[in-house]
Amino acid sequence: MITALLVMIFLAILLGLVLGYSAIKFKVDGDPMVARIDAILPQTQCGQCGYPGCKPYATAIAKGEADINQCPPGGDAGAKALAELMGMEFKPVNEKHGVQKPKSVALIDESTCIGCTLCIQACPVDAILGAAKQMHTIIASECTGCELCLPPCPVDCITMEPVLENSESWKWKYPIYNIQKAQKA
């Protein structure tokens, strides 16, 4: 009886030490769940979810503070992927946060631009080039289409241009064929 107790106590101490040591040694910085959620989010950084960017939204989802259906650019496909990751029921994107739009990039009407730099300050991915009292222009390849530059513009010279399909981005369509009526035998 006493030996058994001693063995148990010894084991408890040993395992406790091992666990305590590994908790310090192998400590994971940051929440790995946040990174996994963040990888699914479209990185538009538009803030339509109510958080200041994709990462804060991912953090909120990981903490359970935010719902998984608040990201319009990610669309239903994104919500589905999040539901799968979180082990939750799929919910279509909440229209309160906006609706999914076709991918667009901002375009500055360069003759109207007064060079106020307000849009530069608003751009979350530094995709606007320009300086005070100089004409500004969008680096189209870096623009995420978040529309955050639209409200600050005092002269309304920014428009969103949908990205059209060109011969490089063209995709084969899902095959659709007509089902014919079976002939009578």
Binding site: D38, L41, P42, Q43, T44, C54, P124, V125, D126, E142
Partner: peptide, 17 residues
């Protein structure tokens, strides 16, 4: 391609912050 674009956007956003 869109995943790659998202990664660039994330990097640029982090750099900006």
């Amino acid at each position: 391609k869109s995943k790659e674009a998202a990664n660039t956007a994330r990097e640029r956003n982090e750099f900006r912050l």
